[in-house]
């Protein structure tokens, strides 16, 4: 419980630094004024923007996120193994091999099918 209290104090200190940087900038700098006609347009190499930015974008980035999720969960599943490596001994090692055997199938799927034409 007291750990959480200490962590929140630390969080507050670093939050003060992060917000303070923007705040100092906001206080000391001059206000933005429109002294050129196109100054407030989004920068697109001189073109006038035609459509909304937050429309569609390539779905391949979403596939990366999904593949990342599988492997990140795999890492999280291996975390409980760390404190008991030496207690489990050979049985633990065999189980790690089985785990990685299953994972290898997922890896081959991701590499050869899911990301095949995208990478």
């Amino acid at each position: 419980m007291e750990k959480i209290f200490l962590v929140s104090i630390y969080f507050l200190i670093s939050l003060v630094i992060a917000v303070g940087l923007i705040f100092i900038h906001y206080i000391l700098s001059e206000k933005a004024k429109q002294n050129f006609p196109d100054k407030f347009l989004p920068f697109e190499s001189g073109m006038t923007p035609l459509q909304d930015v937050r429309g569609r974008f390539p779905v391949k980035f979403y596939v990366f996120a999904l593949a990342f999720l599988i492997f990140d969960i795999e890492i999280a599943l291996l975390l409980p193994y760390i404190p008991v490596v030496r207690e489990l001994g050979l049985i633990g090692l065999v189980e790690v091999f089985i785990f990685f055997g299953v994972l290898l199938l997922a890896y081959i799927y991701v590499r050869e099918i899911a990301l095949k034409e995208r990478i």
């Binding site: 900038h25 001059e30 989004p42 930015v53």
Partner: peptide
């Protein structure tokens, strides 16, 4: 960096 104009895009 601190003294630069505080610009943010309107959109």
């Amino acid at each position: 960096f601190i003294l630069k104009e505080a610009f943010y895009p309107p959109g």
